[in-house]
Design a protein around this nucleic acid. Structure first.
Length: 422
RNA sequence: GUGGGUGUAGCUCAGCUGGUAGAGCGCUGGAUUGUGGUUCCAGUGGCCGAGGGUUCGAAUCCCUCCACCCACCCCA
């Protein structure tokens, strides 16, 4: 009949994006609240940058040769011809804002955190989405190993308080602008005679990005990779001292870590300290968080002031995925069953007062049996009946849903009961 | 971008070698007039992912497409 007005093709969430529904959103909120608490304890403050940035920012910040920039960005031309991109990560934006607003003029190390959606056009799979969420932080303005250790300690605390257990902290140093190029050259030379025996990807990487070879998981290549020079053995004095200090501070704090000489981060801006947290039961995407130091990033983005920084970002989707089971079901404090229409005014006022007192209240009209059933399904701790008798007497039957016991009380007594049981 | 798996009711899934659709849970109502959880009864609900082919007949066989999931890659 009206089929031409009501098309039968359903509109669905676009590939790689998803709706987060209750009760899962409760877990997300809890994780975010926990993160804010811990970040606050370490004196971090929130920064909110735009989701949309000039494409150039990521090309220069993240690295024009990276996978993210070459094939994963949502880039489009705006009406005035400028090229815009949906942020694939947030560090570049934070540094851009830091430079733009001269945050280097503010006292002390700038400690900023953010949370929100990022966008990368990858093929979705478990723990990997095209719109995904990150909770991250950046400490800008210090080269000290103390900050590295503090950042790592903080992130471990966030994960623990969020309810994650059984995770593993991996750290490494990837050198700086001084020793890394030398190491990469050394690696390239070492690869030359053996590359032919390696997998196709490694043969390509040995030319384009030798560091990536170290990440290869192909079984056959492992013995070859074992014999390649490792960056930790070729750090310059400054980087070596820095890395040793970070490790010492972590040990002093009693934080368990494992040095992974082959931990290489995918974004060009990392130097010196890099770290990652992995967790089993996440499938192939087992990395919950990644981070590292980026002492040259600000300059790469046009800053005249040297602004060394270190930061991390937590994959919130993955964190939520691995702590989801530990969440207690949400409950309702009180369900008010209205038995007659005349009860509406009384119930509304009662509900308003109880809500002001901090109790969650749901109202329901209709047959009492039905209302009680609903109260039960909603997980209400108490149910209250409001009908003609109650309005006349000013006293209401309050039922404890767990025990089934019911008492007839005045509004003040009801408030006291709800407060007492909290 | 490349593989593999799966698409049947809101959810989890049955449906053998083709005979035109089922269970459990959920939801709604009833047994119970102003009192939930248990039990019992009834109801609700599906162009069997889409299109084409084979056939008297297709959820079932064949082809194409699409979607989702998992993996490679890469990363959070």
């Amino acid at each position: 009949m009206l089929a031409w007005i009501f098309p039968k093709i359903l509109i669905k969430a676009v590939k790689g994006t998803r709706d987060l529904l209750p009760p899962a959103t409760e877990v997300w909120n809890r994780v975010e609240t926990t993160a804010r608490e811990v970040l606050g304890l370490y004196n971090y403050q929130e920064i909110r940058t735009p989701i949309l940035e000039e494409t150039q920012l990521f090309a220069r910040g993240v690295g024009s040769d990276t996978d993210i920039v070459t094939k994963e960005m949502y880039t489009f031309e705006d009406r005035d011809g400028s090229s815009l991109t949906l942020r694939p990560e947030n560090t570049a934006s934070v540094i851009r804002a830091y430079i733009e607003h001269r945050l280097d003029q503010r006292p002390g190390v700038q400690k900023l955190y953010y949370m929100g959606p990022m966008f990368r056009r990858e093929r979705p799979q478990k723990g990997r989405y095209r719109q995904f969420y990150q909770i991250g932080a950046e400490a800008i303005g210090s080269e000290s190993a103390l900050i590295d250790a503090e950042v790592i300690a903080m992130v471990v605390e966030i994960l623990e308080r969020a309810g994650l257990s059984g995770f593993q902290l991996l750290i490494n140093s990837v050198g700086d602008h001084d020793c890394r190029p030398q190491y990469v050259e050394r690696l390239r030379l070492a690869l030359e005679p053996v590359a032919a025996q390696m997998c196709e990807d490694c043969r390509r990487r040995s030319q384009t990005n030798p560091l990536r070879v170290l990440d290869c998981k192909v079984e056959h290549d492992q013995p070859i990779i074992e014999r390649l020079p490792m960056i930790v053995d070729h750090l310059c004095d400054g980087c070596r001292a820095h890395f040793d200090a970070v490790k010492k501070h972590l040990s002093d704090l009693g934080i368990a870590y494992e040095v992974r000489p082959r931990l290489v981060r995918g974004l060009d801006y990392y130097m010196r300290t890099t770290f990652e947290v992995v967790h089993g039961a996440l499938g192939a995407q087992n990395s919950v968080l990644g981070g590292g130091r980026y002492d040259g990033l600000a300059e790469a983005l046009g800053s005249k002031v040297h602004s060394p920084g270190i930061g991390f970002s937590i994959g919130e989707d993955r964190l939520v995925m691995s702590v989801e089971q530990t969440q207690a079901p949400k409950s309702l404090d009180l369900f008010i069953a209205l038995h007659r229409d005349a009860a509406v005014r009384h119930a509304l006022l009662l509900a308003r007062d109880l809500r002001r007192a901090g109790h969650s209240v749901e109202l329901g009209q209709g047959r009492l049996k039905r209302a009680m059933e609903l109260a039960d399904k909603l997980g209400a701790r108490f149910a209250l009946v409001v009908g003609d008798d109650e309005i006349a007497s000013g006293r209401y039957p309050l039922k404890d849903m767990a025990t089934g016991k019911q008492q007839t009380l005045t509004p003040d007594e009801i408030t006291a009961q709800l407060a007492a049981k909290n």
